[in-house]
């Protein structure tokens, strides 16, 4: 059982992570680099003169070490997600739920909501240089919100009655009603257009990544099961 979880998690995580890393480098990284020009003071917004919206930005792999590390860490992160997902898939299958590439799409969406969208709804994906509360406080809020959303997703998918749906709704809403840690004042030098584009791109690529991850995990879970059966 453990080798099936491990194998499908590793395959799904590495494959989805690699695709995600390339998507992020193409769609998200230029926005981040653009923001860093303001963070570092090379470009200044709110001055008397208009600032070009199209500065020269380094292309993909212009900094091979930086982008290479990003690829490795994206693959690692998505492998972490995939191991959790494959483990939960094993539990769901034991309870009689079908796991395959198609149902995996829904698993991916639920994972995106749990790990990316739920915390991001109040702690919006941030570009470098924006004002934010203490990182430790935000990490605690992030962790609690992800845990609550994860339980909520499971209850919605497998609870099977109205009470579990209501508990799930409460778990999803509560962290946002309590509120995420916010900065005391705004000091970010980055134009709002860049911040908004970054958040939109981060969510969009995140959703694509998770749907791929879920589908891959479902596929490898099934394929590994068949392989083990054939070998037995």
């Amino acid at each position: 059982m453990f080798s099936r979880i491990l194998t499908s998690g590793l395959f799904a995580g590495a494959a989805a992570g690699l695709i995600t890393a390339l998507l992020q480098l193409y769609f998200v990284q230029p926005v981040l680099l653009h923001a860093e020009l303001y963070e570092g003071g090379e470009l200044v917004h709110f001055g008397a003169d208009p600032v070009t919206a199209h500065p020269d930005l380094p292309g993909m792999f212009a900094e091979p070490m930086r982008d290479g590390l990003s690829i490795i860490f994206t693959m690692l992160t998505y492998t972490g997600y995939a191991l959790v997902m494959a483990a939960l898939m094993s539990v769901a299958e034991r309870q009689g739920h079908e796991i395959n590439a198609r149902t995996g799409l829904l698993w991916g969406l639920a994972g995106f909501i749990t790990f990316h969208f739920a915390p991001g709804l109040s702690l919006a994906p941030e570009v470098p240089g924006v004002a934010a509360a203490d990182v430790g406080a935000r990490q605690i809020w992030w962790t609690i919100t992800v845990a609550a959303a994860g339980v909520a997703m499971w209850l919605i998918a497998f609870g099977g009655n109205l009470v579990s749906i209501l508990i799930a709704a409460l778990l999803l809403l509560a962290p946002h009603i309590v509120g995420a840690p916010e900065p005391e004042s705004f000091s970010g030098p980055v134009p709002t257009e860049i911040g908004a584009l970054f958040a939109a791109r981060a969510f969009g690529i995140g959703m694509a990544a998770w749907v791929l991850l879920g589908s891959f995990a479902g596929y490898f879970w099934q394929a590994e099961g068949k392989r083990a059966e054939a070998a037995a």
């Binding site: 994206t74 992160t77 959790v84 790990f115 990182v135 992030w142």
Partner: peptide, 30 residues
Amino acid sequence: GLGIITLTGHVQASALHDAAHDVRHATGFP
């Protein structure tokens, strides 16, 4: 899995933070 996520997403040790910096921003970690 959660251990890996904590390592790549949350641990603030500067070497890890610098290496994972862009990924943390793009993946929505504080």
